[in-house]
Design a protein around this nucleic acid. Structure first.
Lengths: 182, 182
DNA sequence: AGAAATAAGTCAATATGACTGACGTAAATT
DNA sequence: AATTTACGTCAGTCATATTGACTTATTTCT
């Protein structure tokens, strides 16, 4: 047994009933770009798998990664804004944030203007981890964009951006600091 | 308060300490394509949100969706192959699969050659739901690819494909039935 | 100055999706 | 006949998320 993922899936024999009910896998007229749906699934699955291994060493999960990433990228971000980016509840954030703070990956400082706020910053340690994780994802992204035709990387950017809910796009554009977004 | 997602994130004032420690958000030399990392996150977040709403009406979650999707697309798939596609354990699959079978979205038939196998098929009802969910994702994908330059959609396909672990690519290519993969 | 709104944290209870490890059964393979 | 395979299942656990209610401190509004 190799460690290849799913092998003999094509060895299957369709049952008679199946042949009756299904006109082959793409019985919906090929209008449906199933391939993109599935490619996105697999691409994202593997995209998140690199950091997972490192995070496991710290007893962290993906939730920690997301928090760490956006805090590192947006030093001084407010809890409320982080909640809206991640689209999770205060309670969900609270747990992972507490762990990150307790273990000295993130620190909180009262807002200088509004002292109710607890602005979030990565510590040196937190920043290092954030960068380390980003590098992993970056490597994969670079490998994936490397041998694309000229300008294709920008097409990918545009595609991904347009996959986002229209009303969320302005905020994402700001957050992501897109090189040029019309 | 509008229902826009994360607004005043750019209104924050960097603390003195922050300015000392951070040379701005992109202190890592711009080698790191942070934008792609984040765009992928947001794109995938919204990509999965459309089906989620429908699934909730049936008391299903994303796990059900994935199973339903791959069974619908690969009628007669074996449990083992499905496990390898989804990269989850038998127990995790078991729970959601049981619910889908009990509620008549998926049916199991003994393999005609190997009677140990329980080949999986969507029922009419299951197929309808699968298509309905795919259409939602399809719409978003079409909107996103629509105004891309010529050939850009293929660049996106290639990009996504190359984001996948190299050793998983042959299997994905087979499964996804890519139009043309060199 | 007092009332209302906001930022953040917290409590309790719950759900979902995942995990490990062990075991059982039927059927196929050697 | 022994072993392997395909699948299912039991028991226990964990991580991540949810809702709703409540507290505290602080700011803003009137």
């Amino acid at each position: 047994m190799t460690d290849v993922n799913f092998k003999n899936q094509s060895d299957r024999i369709p049952s008679p009933d199946e042949k009756a009910r299904f006109g082959g896998p793409a019985q919906e007229p090929d209008e449906l770009p199933y391939d993109l749906i599935e490619l996105l699934f697999f691409a994202y699955r593997d995209f998140t798998s690199d950091p997972d291994d490192v995070l496991a060493q710290f007893d962290f999960g993906r939730a920690h990664h997301r928090v760490l990433h956006f805090v590192d990228r947006n030093p001084g971000i407010k809890v409320t804004d982080l909640l809206n980016i991640l689209r999770i509840t205060k309670q969900s954030l609270g747990r992972v944030l507490k762990q990150l703070v307790d273990q000295d990956f993130i620190e909180q400082r009262p807002g200088p203007l509004d002292r109710r706020q607890r602005l979030l910053f990565t510590t040196g340690k937190g920043h290092d981890l954030a960068v380390r994780l980003s590098r992993l994802q970056t490597k994969r992204l670079e490998r994936a964009t490397m041998d694309l035709p000229d300008g294709a990387a920008d097409a990918v950017r545009q595609f991904l951006f347009q996959m986002i809910d229209p009303d969320a796009r302005p905020d994402v554009a700001k957050l992501v600091r897109l090189p040029s977004q019309p």
